[in-house]
Amino acid sequence: MIRLPSLLAAVTAVILALAPPASARQDDARLDTLFRVLQDTRDDAVAQATQDAIRSIWLEHPGPEIRDLMEEGVQYLFAERFTDALAMFDRVVDLAPDYAEGWNRRANTHYLMGDYAAAVADIRTALELEPRHFPALAGLGLIYLAIDEPGGALRAFDGALSINPHLKGVRARADELRSDLAGEAL
């Protein structure tokens, strides 16, 4: 049986996702409502639909050149052509330095290339532009794990979970780290 609040939240998320963008970026007016739905829902399907809507809004950009560069960069990432992806995302952040998702995608590319310092710098910029960017925080946690800083990883994962409590993999990793760190304290 579907609860009325869950159904209402799902319908709201879909309507908001299909509405015309206010600014098509991290300051898009639809995001505040979607983040409230994400915090309030207990329904996994609603949470997933809401996360997808948020990510779609973050990817939107009013400039066709930026949209094309982002699409090409993502395709290069999936093809594991990291140097080509980096070139696309470099162009994105040069042309649209206020576009958080461009910085986040470039951070992902740096991470995959093993350049953790550059990835952290780009994540910090993405978070300055969009402090609720839970994938960037989760990515920061992965970087801290890669450089063997479990305390930093836990803080980053907890930050992501405070924004989006539905990140099951992040929650499991945070719980594991919390347990490991508690064991070290003994």
Rank of each mutant, 00 (worst) to 15 (best):
L7V: 04
K168S: 01
A153W: 09
A160V: 11
F134I: 04
E71W: 01
A153P: 01
A87L: 10
G139N: 15
L154T: 12
G183H: 01
R132T: 00
A29K: 08
A19N: 07
V74P: 01
A119G: 05
L154E: 09
F35P: 05
A13K: 09
R106K: 08
L8Y: 05
V37L: 12
G159F: 08
A172P: 01
I15L: 15
E184R: 15
T83Q: 09
H61V: 00
A138W: 01
R91T: 08
A185S: 13
R36H: 12
A96G: 03
I57E: 05
G114K: 12
D44W: 00
A174E: 10
Y76H: 14
N108I: 15
F35L: 06
Y111L: 14
L154Y: 04
A126V: 12
R178W: 09
A138R: 13
S23D: 04
V120W: 00
T125V: 12
G114F: 11
D122F: 11
L137N: 04
R55I: 07
L34D: 04
L145I: 07
E149T: 04
L112I: 07
L77S: 11
R155C: 03
T41A: 15
G151V: 03
L31I: 09
R3E: 08
T41G: 05
P165K: 15
A156W: 01
P97M: 12
N164D: 15
A24P: 02
E101R: 07
R132K: 14
A156Q: 14
P20L: 11
R3L: 10
A47G: 10
S23H: 06
L77K: 10
D32F: 02
N164Y: 02
A96D: 02
D84K: 07
F35Q: 13
G102D: 12
G139E: 09
A45T: 15
R178N: 02
E149N: 15
I147P: 02
A156D: 11
M88P: 00
Q75G: 09
W103F: 14
F35E: 10
Y76F: 13
L129N: 07
L16H: 07
L181C: 11
A185M: 07
E128M: 10
D122P: 09
L142G: 10
Q39A: 11
A118L: 14
R178M: 07
R105S: 14
M113F: 01
M70H: 05
T83E: 12
E128W: 07
G151A: 13
Q48H: 06
R171Y: 05
V120K: 14
D115S: 13
A156Y: 05
V14L: 13
K168F: 01
T109M: 05
L145Y: 05
L127I: 03
E176P: 08
L140C: 11
D180N: 09
L167S: 13
R25Y: 05
V11T: 03
L86G: 10
Y116F: 14
